[in-house]
């Protein structure tokens, strides 16, 4: 393995990467739904319009939990749920989101969905599935498990 050979390979790799970028961009222009570049992340908080989940802060989540008539849904995978969750929450991970239809019949009941924290999207996915299944009072607690535990709330 001589330095010269490694250098030659590195030049080839760099050329291959530039070629890949060019091909990727060219192919993107031919798509019917091209990826916008620069990339724009989807909106962080779902709007509160009809049929869409609303957003709830830590204070709102805690208040709802203390009142006690809101159904809390933990959208994390079962391993995380078993390690700890908001007391009274039920587990409905994205992998079982098809079960959203099988949830209790009361479509008017307040539902609050959460996952790990600001970096996860599962709560939003599950909340949208619940809305699609006809639930009319669905909110997302974006701060999630991280914010709940950091605030020292009951587990």
């Amino acid at each position: 393995m001589t330095a010269e050979n490694v250098f030659r390979d590195a030049v080839l790799v760099a050329a291959g990467f530039l070629l890949s970028l060019a091909v990727g961009f060219a192919a993107n222009r031919l798509r019917s739904d091209p990826l916008p570049v620069p990339y724009r992340a989807p909106a962080d908080h779902p709007s509160d319009e009809a049929g869409m989940p609303g957003a709830v802060t830590l204070a709102g989540a805690e208040a709802a939990w203390r009142v006690g008539d809101t159904l809390f849904i933990d959208a994390r995978e079962p391993d995380f749920f078993e390690d700890g969750h908001i007391p009274g929450a039920i587990n409905l991970p994205v992998s079982r989101v098809a079960d959203a239809r099988a949830l209790s019949g009361d479509r008017e009941r307040a539902v609050l969905v959460y996952c790990t924290g600001a970096d996860c999207r599962d709560s939003r996915i599950v909340a949208l599935a619940l809305c699609a299944a006809g639930h009319r009072n669905v909110d997302v607690f974006a701060g999630g498990w991280d914010e709940w535990t950091r605030a020292g709330l009951p587990q």
């Binding site: 890949s20 970028l21 990727g24 961009f25 570049v37 620069p38 990339y39």
Partner: peptide, 19 residues
């Protein structure tokens, strides 16, 4: 950084294929 996300998402699959 956000500016690199789009180019990477387009180029990386091609680069993996090429590799």
């Amino acid at each position: 950084p956000e500016w690199s996300v789009g180019p990477l998402a387009l180029g990386m699959p091609v680069f993996e294929l090429l590799t």
